[in-house]
Design a protein around this nucleic acid. Sequence first.
DNA 1: AATGCTTGCAACCGCCTTCGG
DNA 2: TCCGAAGGCGGTTGCAAGCAT
Length: 242
Amino acid sequence: MAMEAGALPLKAGLERCGKSCRIRWINYLRPDIKRGKFSLQEEHTIIQLHALLGNMWSAIATHLPKRADNEIKNYWNTHLKKRLTKMGIDPITHKPKTDALGSAAANPNDDVNLSHMAQWESARLEAEARLVRDSKVPILPPQNHLAAPSSSAPTTKPQCLDVLKAWQGVVSGLFTFNVDSIQSLTSTLNFMENTTLPMSSSSVGMLNDNFGWNSSIPCESGDILKVDDDNSACEWKCLEKP
DNA sequence: AATGCTTGCAACCGCCTTCGG
DNA sequence: TCCGAAGGCGGTTGCAAGCAT
């Protein structure tokens, strides 16, 4: 791939600019590209990553190695966005639309629920900003902020987590805790420090129903990610598979 | 059969970043 | 350090195909 993009169209006899050729290659001609219908697993992954990363299609595409970011973007805009809307979920914020909560309108906890959602969204946005900031380095399991920093120490644990799994752990770990205990739960993730994320049981149910999030996340290496709550910190561990 | 509308997707556009001279 | 070219990315558009009337 040493050929300049500008020279390629000339050599190929094309009336396209190099940039256009590059896009065509990346999105369509690349031999390792997977085309056709998205699997349920892929849809699931896209939805979760979109909730985490927003419209960062290239970042999302890195978790679906055989899919082009453009294709994912198109699929989101033409299929998944509509589906979420139909489910009563705002495809931008991934929060339930107000009218979707209408059935619980008489519930006195509604204000609390909305407040919780706002907190959740705030934390998500912070996470996005942090991810963008740290995008140059591998995303590792969050460290306990009470532990001494070990930036120079080599990582001995297998790098079994990617951003999706890490985030799944945060979300599902929170959602599957007893609601009362969640009140005091604080993540050790820097972006979530001092941010409590209480969720109503109805929200938990809705999200789990829609996305199938669980508290134990199997890692690619076979390890399991678990979230612990010691009332002051949420510790992440990559446990050896039993 | 003709027309208009909807859908899906490839390609383009514009902006920002990176790279090399 | 500056500057132009190229790369990278997300948003948007254009158009062909399918569908409804």
